[in-house]
């Protein structure tokens, strides 16, 4: 609410997106500050995932746009979003199923490394050094999300919870400034959710800003510094959890008034 803050990490300005007659996003404006855990909640079909997709370049918004880290984001170019420092996970997990867990994370290093075909064919010392660094970093990240013992297994053979963790490790491998998690706790039991919560807090403490979509209101309110609520594609409120929780419009949206 205060105005004399440093420039935000992400600023969405009047982002609009519609699919035929469905207005999935109606002029959504919000700001995410450096170092916070920012929650994005709302009933099913509210437009949360659509917001992610617009931000990460999978969809081109029909109106408005994003400023990230001081410069505008190019629409329709997911690879640029990743290069700029936005990483994401998917609501319906999207791993590289027939690659090992380790390889999945190694792919995440793609955007921060440069070896090309010629280097690989000639197996130059620069390529070998980079390859070793990629591998080491990927192993470290598997340790970080605590699935190092599954490194050699195909991603599709991992348990559901481990797949969620692997997706986070792959996203972290791109060295994001902003990590966007789309319902990471979906389908998890209480213990798994608690472990996930610790993981997310750890990632934030290590310096990555987090945008979290989640249906588990308890998790969101306990974890997030600020929360935005979407309903029918429109932003209802953006504030600290204590305020959001008491807001009449939010209560109505969730109770289906």
């Amino acid at each position: 609410m205060s105005t004399n803050l440093p420039t935000p990490l992400l600023e969405a300005k009047a982002v609009a997106k519609h699919f035929g007659g469905v207005k999935a996003l109606r002029d959504v404006s919000l700001t995410i500050r450096h170092g916070e855990i920012y929650g994005l909640i709302g009933p099913n079909g509210a437009g949360k995932t659509t917001f992610f997709n617009c931000m990460t370049g999978l969809y081109v918004p029909d109106g408005g746009g994003f400023t990230f880290d001081g410069a505008p984001l190019v629409a329709d170019a997911p690879q640029h979003a990743a290069a700029r420092g936005i990483a994401r996970t998917f609501q319906n997990i999207r791993l590289f199923g027939n690659m090992t867990a380790l390889e999945n994370v190694m792919v995440g290093r793609h955007v921060r490394t440069r070896a090309g075909v010629i280097g690989a064919m000639l197996n130059t010392s620069a390529t070998r050094a980079e390859e070793a660094a990629i591998r080491q970093r990927a192993i470290d990240l598997l340790h970080y999300v605590r699935i190092e013992d599954r490194a050699g297994d195909l991603a599709k053979n991992l348990s559901y919870g481990d797949q969620r963790r692997l997706e986070i490790a792959r996203a972290l491998a791109t060295e994001p400034k902003l990590l966007c998690l789309d319902e990471p706790a979906a389908g998890m039991n209480a213990t798994e959710t608690e472990e996930l919560r610790e993981l997310i807090e750890g990632i934030r403490d290590d310096g990555t800003t987090i945008l979290l979509i989640e249906h588990d209101v308890k998790l969101v309110m306990g974890l997030c510094d600020r929360v935005a609520v979407l309903d029918y594609g429109a932003l209802v409120i953006e504030d600290v959890p204590a305020v959001v929780q008491k807001d009449q419009r939010v209560i109505e949206a969730y109770l289906g008034a």
Binding site: P78, L95, F96, N98, V111, G116
Partner: peptide
């Protein structure tokens, strides 16, 4: 050599899931 290289992994990633490959920054 290509198989176990940065480019080779990017190829396999595209084969497995093109959208996820884009999301991790593969052109």
């Amino acid at each position: 050599r290509l198989q176990n290289s940065r480019i080779g992994r990017a190829w396999q990633a595209i084969r497995e899931d093109e959208i996820a490959a884009k999301a991790v920054g593969i052109n």
